[in-house]
Design a binder for these strands. Structure first.
Lengths: 136, 136
DNA sequence: TCATTATATGCCTTGACACGTATATGCTGT
DNA sequence: ACAGCATATACGTGTCAAGGCATATAATGA
């Protein structure tokens, strides 16, 4: 019966590293499935499945070239992502300004959030916060 | 022992709709957990958990205000996303140019990819491809 | 027609994550 | 010290997507 995947939002699509790799490859030029397979060193079914997801989400389209299918990028979904990102651009330019204006006026120190239980304090992912107010 | 989540890439973080909602809220101004909880109408543990993920990924930071924690946005991870997106901007401006130049010269028709099995041709997700070469 | 190449799909397993509910921890004012 | 509020964490559960492997389908050339 073949399952219907969810996978709507642009964001979920690009959450997958292999798919991002495919997109980054296709931005250079059209590629056939086999070419993608070889360049990214992933099994062919994996490539095909990801391409299907990308196609159904509008990220790519394909044309037939003899027995192969050539996949090419389509701009719309990425532009959509860009549009979402736009709301933050104002913010981070403002942020840079603020930094420049009063460079060392720290509003409040950043806090360690982990609640010390009896057990070891949970810490993950490498150097945490060590650059937090690192300026000055 | 408390599990260590993966959740590295910026992309996986923003794949979650509630997290995107939180980010979009925080871009306006700092908010406490309770304020987020009320505005987004999600249970408090949910908010706290997402905030933790966002914090550990560097999207937000928090400061203490009496018993509450005020969360504020941090620009870096979103800038990272923006940087990734940059590689495609060249592409889609080029694409727009091409469209403008020969607007109705369709290079190749877009193909239907589903392989007709005995079973019904697989079609998913609503209006498929109906806008594929929709221009002109 | 047949072998070969190219691509798509099916099935199964595994793991990750989001959520609900309950509870722990911590700060504040009395 | 205690009650109450604010936030964080633990645990159990269901869902869903990604990958491996096998196989189906299609086009090509001999």
């Amino acid at each position: 019966m073949e399952y219907i995947a969810d996978m709507d939002s642009v964001f979920e699509i690009i959450a997958e590293p292999n798919r991002r790799a495919i997109l980054s490859l296709l931005v250079l030029s059209k590629q056939s499935v086999g070419e993608i397979e070889r360049q990214l060193r992933m099994p062919q079914p994996t490539v095909s499945k990801h391409l299907r997801v990308l196609r159904e989400a509008g990220f790519v389209e394909s044309t037939v070239d003899a027995q192969r299918r050539l996949y090419r990028l389509r701009p719309e979904p990425l532009q959509e992502l860009d549009a979402w990102l736009a709301q933050f651009r104002r913010f981070w330019s403002a942020h840079v300004d603020a930094l420049e204006r009063h460079l060392d006026r720290l509003d409040q120190p950043t806090i360690d959030h982990s609640r010390p239980t009896k057990k070891t304090t949970t810490r993950r992912r490498g150097p945490n916060r060590e650059r937090d107010k690192g300026e000055k």
